[in-house]
Amino acid sequence: MELITAGVDIGSTMTKVVIINKEILASIIGPTGAEHRQLADKVMAQALEQAGISFEDVHYILATGYGRINVPFADKQMTEIACHARGIHSFFPTARTVIDIGGQDSKAIKLDNEKVINFVMNDQCAAGTGRFLEVIAEALGLGLEEMGEMSLRAKKKEKISNTCTIFAEQEIVSRLAEGAAVEDIVAGLFEGVVGRIYHMAERLKIENDTVITGGGAKSIGIIKAFEKKLGFTPMVPPEPLLTGAIGAALLGRDLAYGSMERSEPLRRKERRLKSATFFK
């Protein structure tokens, strides 16, 4: 019997749902928004529709990401560190280091096959996260991907020294007023952000193969800056936003098959597809 499992990854900015059996049956990416408790069931419903299956057809649901506790229909919750590791391993079995640039944080994960052996995260600061890049892109009136492409045309790199997102924004406004080229500013910005993430990841000793994932990996500016810093080309999954949700679905599948092999009942919750609420 081919089991169907789902991974629900509620990140700080994006919510992702993946449904798999042997292959990916559905994948949905949508903004998390302020009220993610009301959203998980809707995104799940969209994914089910895309897969052409009903909620009852899904054998196991594993939730991850910052909002994982607000997925009342999930059978289990795990951190995105474990899920990214599993997801990345499925694409790149030789990966030893994963760098995830998410909306709210950035992390580095050291792998031994699909096992997490260590991790580091940025601490109490948005510098080095997707949110930092978003704020700056907004200030410059650019899209994130556009900003990445623009950085490749830079003639030099304007150094942005502030690590605080708000002060960095102010510093950029000042540089623009001084006449600096936008291309040079964004190139300097990527260099700065990548430098911070790289030095954090170096605590784990970065080893090849290295994979960059998360929303940040969608920016060519970030990838090129990493390439320069690492001295080699990092790998990027086909859809960097989905590795956590895919990993969650795969971990769910591992658990489900593990139970079957051991002839143990699969611990599932009595579940209904509904929103989380704290007021009942």
Binding site: Y66, T79, I81, V116, N118, M121
Partner: peptide, 14 residues
């Protein structure tokens, strides 16, 4: 708190 919980959750998974 959220950072503490996030790190401890991941550490406990390891």
């Amino acid at each position: 708190d959220s950072e503490f919980n996030q790190k401890i959750d991941a550490f406990m998974e390891i």
